[in-house]
Write a protein that binds this DNA or RNA. Structure first.
Lengths: 84, 84
DNA sequence: TAAATAATTAGACATTTGTCTAAATGTTTA
DNA sequence: TAAACATTTAGACAAATGTCTAATTATTTA
């Protein structure tokens, strides 16, 4: 769960998740939405992936990113435990 | 919401919230549960407070900390928006 | 009122993090 | 097969973060 919170602790990564909620996107699609270099985005995607928040599917030279709602559910459960 | 994620991005702070879920505690009570100096705990409590995740009540020379479930609810709402 | 107690503030320092440029890897197309 | 394209990896560097010790503030008690 620590990796999940680490991953969420960045505005760009939260924005990426918000985008992926609507549709799957390639690394390039995602990078195009930010005023940030491709390597930086790649780094953010790596953190999201290591946290289990996104999954990847290689399609030729493209890499398609999808949100993994299983981990989002785990996170919801965790937050719920903080309620009295 | 950024401050909330920042605040949650630390194991000690998440542990503090878990403890406060059960009962209100003074800064000293909390510090006693960790192998960490009082100033360090004070710093963590400050981050939690700035994020709105805890509230304080001064009682003489003690400061009683409580969890603020309003913000926890806001967080839950945010996480829910990540679901498809 | 002086000493003790609870908590915070200030400042130093090592570690982690986010960003960049340059280079490398893998895939497609002319 | 060479060039172009999509993406990642490597490495540098500044900024943010977590921890500590020392000092300060505020409150209680002997």
């Amino acid at each position: 769960m620590n990796d999940v919170f680490k991953a969420l602790n960045d505005p760009a990564r939260r924005e990426i998740l918000k985008m992926l909620r609507k549709r799957d996107m390639t690394a390039g699609d995602i990078a195009a939405k930010f005023d940030m270099t491709a390597p930086s985005i790649s780094h953010h995607l790596d953190k999201l992936k290591r946290a289990g928040l996104v999954t990847t599917l290689k399609q030729g030279q493209f890499v398609l990113y999808s949100i993994n709602t299983t981990i989002v559910d785990d996170l919801l459960q965790y937050i719920l435990t903080l309620k009295k």
